[in-house]
Amino acid sequence: MLTRGSAMNQRSALTIARRRALLLCATCAATLAALIGTALSTGDMHIPFFTAVRALFGAGDSGTVLVVQQFRAPRVFAAVFAGAALAVAGSMTQRLLRNPLASPDVIGVTGGASCGAVLILATGGIPAALTPVAAVAGGLLVAVLLGASAWRSQVSVTRLVLVGVALQQGLAAVVNLMIVRFPQELASQALQWSSGSLYGRTWTEVWVAGGAIVVGGAVAALTQRRVAVLDLGEESAGGLGLDPRRARLGLLVLAVLLASLAAALSGPIGFVALVVPHLVRRLAGPPTPATLALTALTGAVLLLGADYVALNLLPIRGLPAGSVTATLGAPWLLVLMARSRTKPVQRTLT
């Protein structure tokens, strides 16, 4: 898109893109705030919107404060953090691997992370604060396996995706084993985790994983410039004094960390990491400094919205948010695949 027109036009186009991204950011933030309020106010006990928001900050009668602060808020903020982290991780991997299919959920990183989390839960007696650590370990393990088997002089994403599919089959077997072997209560807990659900999150988990996600997001924002340099291609990046392979590896590790932390909060939520970057590219055009924030906000809105739909609007109550995102995201992926035949490779990644 940038290629047409002169330098002048490019500059003005960039300004427009920047303004547009900021505007979209503001819209998204407003939507997110409204969604948070709505999610806090709906449930078995209906609480008016503003009462719920005030109760979040501790004002109002103690019953309302208890419901909002202890029962609803952890779930809502888990969704916000997990959605944002997934979206950012997805946009990073898609950009770094130069392929719109390469998102952490498709290649199995989130599956590995939640497998780690389930294993920790299953052993019992380990504080909930350690779940994110286990999830990160699982996600990194999958990433290393992927790297070992798919990485050659350059990354063929098809290979990466297919190896990821194989890994996911193995992980599914692990979860299946736990579901069959465990006593019933643990079995449904393991199932709950492997389904991508925000059920029963506590503040401890939200603080630990959410805090780590914020740090990771900040690092991602600071390294945006490197990503932009890497976009120019390995040789140009080398010319600009950046070791492209090391930089790329480091950024990929950061993306894996973010995705794993998200999985520690929500289990393997599918398709958010895949879809949001596309959506953002469509809405905001070429990447600007505001794009990362927009991606995070859109991810948060999407996951919170999916959880709201799963919780309140479906005929069967209590479905995991993951099944809503999968149902919405799969057609998207299929359309993407169908279109990939007819369009040249370069147009998606500006």
Partner: peptide, 19 residues
């Protein structure tokens, strides 16, 4: 890939029903 996508969706629905 289509097989994987369909499997992912069906698996998530299966899990949802079991939950």
């Amino acid at each position: 890939l289509s097989g994987t996508v369909l499997t992912a969706v069906l698996a998530s629905w299966t899990t949802a029903l079991m939950l």
